[in-house]
Design a protein around this nucleic acid. Structure first.
Length: 481
DNA sequence: ATGTAC
């Protein structure tokens, strides 16, 4: 067995550690971290999960952990695992997460920080009113019924823009140009559909937010310019996912796979790693449902972004131009070279961000031919701290993936015990961050001290060769889910 | 993350 005491880490390079295969591990574990992050590195449980993932049928290369790794449901958050489809490789809902296609969208405003300053409170009030958030209630777009929801699930942000909720650039700069093709709205449970009907255009809660930020430092001028970013510029970052619909899809398919697994001769060290071959009926059914949730999440961010754009236009006259929109909870069928051979892989990224290298065919058209510019990678920090824009680099060691954020170190409970929401708001306001919360408890749970240092996480990602920093952004206002 | 437990 692989379970028991925490797996031993062997240092390979300054930013790379290995867990040697023991028991039923088919491949090693590989953890990208700096010595400074290492004492935390997600805790023993997260490392055990890295080892557990290495037992999955068809896994290739290694079970990878990004510098922001921490404990999650089955798979660690900050985990990347690729399986070889032709070799019986599996897909696991736990490798995607409950919030399917949770991700980040970043807009750059035609506005500098100094010009926002006199209108900042009014803009935050406007964004607070235009951004439904918190558990359950409210959405930007009240859908007419299941037929219209099916169009959202099939066409994602493309349908939203088609219906007038955005502009062409919003699609040009979105992962998969706004939608994935193989979604199957008809395959969703009634519960998933009902939960999806009334939440399109809503933040949710937890670590989800809409932030007004300012570009604090440009690290790579060429890439920043190509992405549409300059120092001192105002930006809007939106972090949210597929709400109750994605959650229900994950729940439904974990249950199905728990039953179906034995029929494929698969056993896993943790029930939460339930999985089936990609090339099977339940595997294909999950991927089609997951794709529907991915489209829902992009449409969700599209609608919230459009609402924010209207607030900015009304109160400042400035437009919002999409920099990029990228998921950090998704499985994708991709082609990668493994041991010198081109293979079709199912790449699970859970709390990990795709980071395509320069020249990749799936880059936005205006970035594709630039020699040193890869995919924009959006890394949200914790509330009140910096966020980053990175870019993909050639020869990334983990299937073109990198970190997704700061990563928790304190549980929600621990955080809520150590600070009151009102007090935290006062601290943030004193530091120049305007706060529009949804609940005091929710605010306290997201205190910056509950997270790793985002600067250290990004430094480790760069040091490990996963991505390169382009710009650092600091918050001036947060609308909290 | 989540109608914070079916």
């Amino acid at each position: 067995m692989t379970r028991g005491s925490a797996p031993a880490l062997v240092q390979e390079t300054a930013y790379r550690y290995r867990i040697d295969p023991i028991g039923r591990m088919r491949v090693p574990g590989v953890v990208f971290a700096s010595p400074g992050l290492l004492p935390e590195v997600g805790g023993d449980q997260a490392l055990q999960q890295v080892a557990d993932v290495a037992t999955l049928p068809g896994i290739v290369d290694a079970s990878y952990a990004m510098p922001d790794v921490h404990w999650g449901y089955g798979f660690p958050i900050g985990g990347v695992a690729a399986t070889d489809i032709a070799e019986g490789g599996v897909v696991s809902p736990g490798g995607v997460g409950f919030d399917i296609s949770c991700g980040v969208r970043l807009y750059a405003a035609d506005l500098d920080a100094a010009d926002l300053a006199p209108r900042k409170e009014a803009v935050l009030d406007g964004l607070s009113r235009s951004t439904p958030r918190g558990m359950g209630k409210g959405a930007v777009w009240e859908l007419s019924g299941t037929d219209q929801l099916a169009k959202v699930l099939a066409s994602g942000a493309r349908y939203a823009v088609e219906q007038g909720h955005g502009v062409q650039r919003d699609l040009d700069r979105c992962e998969d140009l706004g939608a994935v093709d193989d979604a199957d709205p008809a395959g969703l449970s009634e519960r998933a559909v009902n939960r999806g009907l009334h939440q399109l255009g809503s933040l949710g809660s937890g670590n989800h937010f809409l932030e007004v930020q300012v570009v604090d430092a440009v690290r790579d001028r060429v890439a920043a310019e190509a992405f549409g970013l300059r120092a001192g510029q105002v930006c809007v970052m939106i972090h949210c996912g597929s709400r109750g619909l994605g959650h229900q899809i994950c729940t439904d398919h974990v249950r199905t796979m728990e039953q179906a697994m034995a029929g494929f001769g698969i056993t896993v060290p943790d029930r939460q790693l339930a999985c089936v071959p990609v090339d099977s009926d339940p595997g294909r059914a999950y991927l089609r449902a997951m794709a529907a949730a991915a489209n829902y999440a992009r449409a969700n961010r599209q609608l919230l972004g459009q609402a924010a754009r209207e607030v900015f236009e009304r109160l400042t006259g400035a437009g919002l131009n999409l920099v990029y929109d990228i998921s950090h909870n998704l499985a994708k069928v991709e082609t990668h070279v493994v041991a010198g051979q081109s293979r079709r892989l199912c790449v699970h990224r859970k709390g990990a961000t795709r980071a395509l290298p320069p020249g990749h065919a799936d880059l936005p058209a205006d970035l594709r031919d630039l020699p040193d510019v890869g995919q924009p990678v959006l890394i949200p920090g914790s509330m009140g701290t910096a966020s980053y824009v990175l870019t993909g680099v050639p020869g990334g060691p983990a299937f073109a993936s990198t970190c997704h954020g700061a990563g928790r170190t304190l549980s929600r409970h621990q955080a809520a015990r150590s600070v009151r929401g009102q007090e935290l708001r006062t601290q943030l306001e004193r530091r120049g961050v305007a706060v529009r919360g949804a609940s005091w408890r929710g605010l306290a749970e997201e205190m910056p001290e509950a997270y790793k240092d985002i600067d250290a996480v990004v430094e480790a990602a760069e040091g490990a060769g996963l991505a390169r920093a382009v710009a650092r952004l600091v918050p001036v206002g947060v609308v909290k889910g």
